[in-house]
């Protein structure tokens, strides 16, 4: 994404709440037009980061620019082009869903009427019901409809699909693709790997308030090892290619992981007549994730 303007640019963000350090030198860069996954387990600092990006809280240290401006000093100008869905959607219990959508879009300049109706229908939301009577999933849908019913340059979504059933999740993903195709930028925080893998072109992984991995999904995959499972026709002939990791041998089958740089050598060594089958699994985001959190191979 080199050469494209960064819509979100944060460097060395620190945020302390008393003695806890919620953010500890976080770097985050989101380029224009990309759908960026912001991955981390609960308590890693994802929501805190989004609040800093919105100028709701002021970073203890570090710099942040959103849409080219400082969100703490110019929140209103920044928010004009932002749609936000909080992680924990709390709405006014005595307002109806339709009233909440109109309030939230109205303050941004008004909903696209056709879009509003279409979204309400697609999310199967009854706008005449009081928020008090909505389930958690329905409240989430109200917030999503409010976010998508008016175009924005940047969508900040904090675990947006939590509480959605698979059908509604599909509706949600279709909306992400729509706004991406319109050229908008999306930052989705999540701890659901499959979601990020399906939706995002770039990923930042954070742990304990610090970005531990960042880049395009493709680039990140290159950092990871491909998992091989090779079966030999003659158990006695089973050999391990040199320099691979986590090798296991069982009867005539060997399993191992290979770095991207090792792939040519490994493949050359496997080009033998007694190889019965080769399975190679692409590096998953999960393995990327577990590498940072699971305390596995480092």
């Amino acid at each position: 994404m080199v050469g494209q303007a960064a819509v979100v640019e944060a460097s060395g963000l620190v945020k302390s709440f008393g003695r806890t350090r919620a953010l500890d030198g976080l770097d985050l860069s989101v380029a224009e037009g990309e759908v960026h996954g912001f991955l981390g387990p609960n308590g890693a600092g994802k929501s805190t980061t989004l609040r800093v990006l919105l100028g709701l809280i002021r970073p203890t240290a570090g710099g942040v620019r959103v849409l080219g401006r400082d969100p703490w000093t110019e929140p209103v100008a920044v928010h004009r082009d932002i749609a936000y869905v909080p992680g924990d959607v709390n709405l006014w219990p005595n307002l109806t869903g339709g009233e909440v959508v109109d309030l939230l879009t109205g303050l941004r300049g008004g909903a696209d009427a056709g879009l509003r109706e279409r979204l309400l229908a697609e999310f199967e939301l009854d706008p005449a019901r009081k928020v008090r009577t909505y389930s958690k999933g329905n409240r989430q849908k109200v917030a999503l409809v409010a976010a998508f019913a008016r175009r924005a340059r940047l969508y900040l979504l904090d675990e947006p699909s939590a509480g959605l059933d698979p059908l509604m999740d599909a509706v949600f993903r279709a909306q992400i693709r729509r706004v991406r195709d319109e050229g908008s930028t999306v930052l989705i925080s999540s701890h659901i790997l499959s979601e990020v893998e399906q939706l995002c072109s770039a990923v930042t992984i954070i742990r304990a308030g610090r970005a531990v991995e960042s880049g395009s999904l493709e680039a990140l995959r290159h950092l990871r090892r491909t998992h091989f499972r090779v079966t030999f026709t003659d158990p006695g002939a089973a050999v391990l290619p040199a320099g691979v990791h986590d090798a296991r041998r069982e009867n005539g089958t060997v399993e191992f992981d290979a770095d991207a740089s090792q792939l040519p050598g490994v493949l050359a060594q496997l080009a033998r007549p007694d190889v019965a089958s080769v399975e190679a699994a692409p590096p998953s985001l999960e393995s990327l994730f577990l590498r940072h959190y699971g305390g596995g191979d480092r």
């Binding site: 006014w92 005595n94 307002l95 109806t96 339709g98 009233e99 109109d102 309030l103 879009t105 109205g106 303050l107 008004g110 009854d126 706008p127 005449a128 019901r129 009081k130 008090r132 009577t133």
Partner: peptide, 23 residues
């Protein structure tokens, strides 16, 4: 039971002042 309400915002339903008053 909780009654149904209006499906869209009424007068003042799109402003902060209207919301504060409503609450």
């Amino acid at each position: 039971a909780e009654r149904a309400g209006r499906p869209a915002a009424g007068f003042g339903g799109r402003s902060l002042l209207g919301l504060a008053w409503r609450l």
